[in-house]
Design a protein around this nucleic acid. Structure first.
Lengths: 232, 232
DNA sequence: ATTGGAGTAAATCTTTGGGTTGATATTTTG
DNA sequence: CAAAATATCAACCCAAAGATTTACTCCAAT
């Protein structure tokens, strides 16, 4: 897999000029890395990323001008294969979580020793994901808390279990935005039959209309082929 | 925080009797741990957990009788403060992800050295989360892949951006299952005005009815106070 | 000063949705 | 086998939702 290319190309984006300079010198000292760009502007950084397609991008995510997280997202959308390492002054769980969610391959604190910075770059360059164990713990606490409510809320009885197979089919089509006619057509039954099913669904889910039925379904694990999401 | 209690209590659940015995001996050798139970049955294990409320539970998640992941969920629901460490023969990303999602404080492979097992227990007992770096990488790859599709799908224009502030308010109430009357009452405007807004929303989102509007909103990042979820 | 967007509202009309009752065939299950 | 649950359909009615048009006010941009 190692190609013929001699050095891995690194792009630095950090609005603190002093820190930027320091990191640049530090990385330049490493024989295997080549700093192809260093800028204090997120927008310029994004353009440099487009231009040079660096192997590694060190991105400060606490910048005033443009949100560093947004910048990560923008760069990820470009579909370059650059590996982004988030640089931050804070070990805030939410920041870490969001950075990782957006595709950052690492997250390091500015206060960390320079040796650790190099180590992180090495690891990420090697295709791994680098999170110092302290931050990793933060991440997992946050991660697990995000799912806690789910588990708790699911102790209330799930009314979906009372639906018959046919009713589930109908509900599934409801959650795809179909009206009576659409459902009737797709299930090859009459519209009045669909109405009967839908009415039974309303009774069982204890709701008054289709919108509430759809919401109940989506909020109570009616997964059916639907991509569900998590709060950003 | 350290209490007057001398030893931390550990419960072992592993359907492989040999492995169970080995781990039990290993842990008993450690002066700071006390094995309060060791069973090859997940169900018995759950009952032992209820009875002893151990500090640490080592749970094998590859058991035929009962799914170990299910057992983790069951124990978590009991609301004991036991910290569960998942034990597995496989470093499957999906398994790791699901175990952590269910609240496991650690995940270790049966093939790992005994010193590492003890280290993991120490770390978890100290309130940290322990994932060997190799597994941690697996986890993050899986984690980021789960969010990839989201980011990609969002390259299609988000029609929600065209909504006015008022329309967003109305849509928000729609996504809570309100009808015209309910929305009118909550916004202190007439029902006909609500209809106007809703119709404008339909135009802008290019949908035909409220259910489709709600679905569009939920599928396109209309987060508004709503707990969103992620596929299990 | 005036244009345009946003929010408000009413009138009208058509379609869809929701509730009810009752009927029949099929399947499940005790 | 008999009883119960499920799936099918019809006819009915009323309420709610959706489409369209018109119009007034306020506010911001020019």
């Amino acid at each position: 897999m190692r190609e013929f290319r001699s050095k891995l190309r690194v792009l630095l984006i950090d609005d603190n000029a002093d820190h930027l300079r320091g990191v640049k010198e530090l990385i330049t000292l490493e024989s295997c890395y080549d700093v192809v760009g260093a800028t204090t502007s997120a927008n310029i950084g994004i353009n440099l990323a487009k231009k040079y397609r660096p192997d590694i991008i060190l991105m400060d995510i606490n910048m005033p001008e443009k949100d560093g997280l947004q910048a990560i997202q923008d760069i990820e959308k470009l579909g370059l294969n650059s590996k982004i390492i988030a640089l931050s002054g804070y070990d805030d769980a939410d920041l870490i979580f969001r950075a990782m969610k957006l595709g950052a391959k690492g997250y390091i604190l500015k206060t960390m020793a320079s040796a650790q910075l190099i180590y992180a770059i090495d690891e990420v360059a090697a295709g791994k994901i680098y999170l110092p164990s302290a931050l990793s713990s933060r991440f997992f606490e946050y991660f697990q808390r995000s799912f806690k409510e789910e588990a708790v809320s699911s102790d209330t009885e799930n009314l979906l279990t009372y639906l018959t197979a046919r009713e589930e089919e109908v509900l599934d089509l409801l959650t795809q935005g179909n009206n009576y006619k659409g459902i009737a057509g797709k299930l090859f039954i009459s519209e009045t039959t669909v109405k009967t099913h839908v009415n039974n669904i309303f009774q069982k889910l204890q709701v008054n209309d289709r919108t509430q039925a759809v919401l109940y379904a989506l909020n109570n694990g009616f997964a059916n082929k639907r991509k569900t999401k998590m709060a950003v």
